[in-house]
């Protein structure tokens, strides 16, 4: 062996070593997420990338409309995993933008809490389209000084004793859901004419007890801090968390009548080019520790780990699309115009 062939052999060895090293470091493709804020924490992404070698690319959306527009633009080909709320799930499935869940690949399904394991509201025609992932509710925020124990019933908002100390969410659809739930209607999302009339009267009665309506988390919190408010029909857990952070002694409760809940599901895009990477991400985030971390960081309920104080998932009525948005808005306008 002359020096020449030795050199060739050496360089070949080096090349082999280099290329095998490259094979280890090379990511096994990419998973592209379409998610809401807080659903792809950088810490989880880093851990996932290290663990699996799959690169994560996140696209955040601010709302339902924006999300469906993004999905429709490419028939889902731009994304692998999409988080979709229960109310919109059927529309995505009907338009074939998402694919049924392959339960054999969903190895983390066993981590789900019992109330979420059924996935009933994500199942259409026998196929399951979403895995429950994060949830919250539109519950009651109450002042703990005025109410040492949480009020049992929503009716306390109508109590003249608290006139001018109650605030309520200004949102046509959810206000009508709320009225229907307080009146004990079985399906608050599909009301009859008679039920609409009852809900309208109930909401007008509430209006007379209100200090004001509010829109958005920030506004609710600001009004509470600047005025003498003791009760709120809120936008969610975050309202109470924000007030507690500001030093207000408030509690969050789901009264006996129940409350509207929202539930976001992990789904697989119908246009995914890398389903294995999609399931790898879903299995990763469905670990109990990730759920607990999300609850701690963002105040969302987890489906794998019941956060402290959030023991009421089974009493929530998961949001569904209402029978007629236009009609609900017209009725809500009548409530707001009433004297």
């Amino acid at each position: 062996m002359n020096w020449m062939s030795r050199a060739v052999a050496a360089s070949l060895t080096t090349l082999t070593l280099l290329s095998s090293a490259a094979a280890v470091a090379q990511p096994k493709g990419e998973v592209r997420l379409l998610a809401y804020e807080g659903y792809a924490d950088p810490a989880w992404v880093e851990e996932f990338e290290k663990e699996t070698g799959i690169a994560v690319k996140v696209t955040y959306v601010g709302g339902v409309d924006e999300q469906i527009a993004k999905m429709k633009a490419s028939n889902g080909k731009d994304y692998d995993v999409v988080t979709i709320d229960t109310a919109s799930l059927k529309a995505y499935a009907d338009q074939k933008l998402i694919a049924p869940i392959d339960k054999a690949k969903l190895t983390s399904a066993g981590n789900l809490l019992p109330e979420f394991r059924g996935m009933a509201n994500a199942t259409f025609d026998g196929a399951t389209y979403g895995v429950p992932w994060a949830w919250g509710s539109l519950g009651m925020v109450y002042d703990k000084k005025t109410f040492p124990t949480a009020p049992e019933s929503w009716e306390v908002l109508w109590d003249p004793k608290y006139k001018g100390k109650v605030i309520s969410l200004d949102d046509a659809n959810n206000a009508i859901n709320f009225g229907a739930i307080v009146l004990g209607m079985k399906d608050p999302f599909h009301l009859t004419d008679a039920q609409f009339a009852q809900v309208k009267d109930k909401l007008i009665a509430l209006k007379r007890n209100l200090l004001t309506y509010f829109a958005g988390f920030d506004e609710g919190t600001t009004i509470w801090t600047e005025n003498d408010v003791v009760l709120m029909f809120s936008m969610g857990e975050l309202a109470a968390i924000n007030l507690q952070k500001k030093g207000f002694d408030v509690g969050y409760a789901i009264p006996k009548e129940g409350a509207v809940g929202w539930l976001d599901n992990l789904t697989v895009s119908a246009g995914t080019s890398n389903p294995d990477a999609a399931y790898a991400w879903m299995n990763f985030v469905l670990q109990k520790k990730i759920g607990a971390d999300m609850a701690k960081k963002f105040g969302y309920g987890s489906t794998t780990d019941a956060p402290e104080g959030m023991d009421y998932a089974s009493r929530l009525i998961w949001a569904d699309n209402p029978e007629d948005y236009t009609r609900r808005q017209a009725i809500w306008n009548e409530v707001k115009a009433a004297e």
Binding site: A172, N173, Y325, T326, R328, Q329, A330, W332, N333
Partner: peptide, 8 residues
């Protein structure tokens, strides 16, 4: 209010 979810 007619231009949000009401879509009227």
């Amino acid at each position: 209010s007619q231009f949000g979810l009401a879509l009227n």
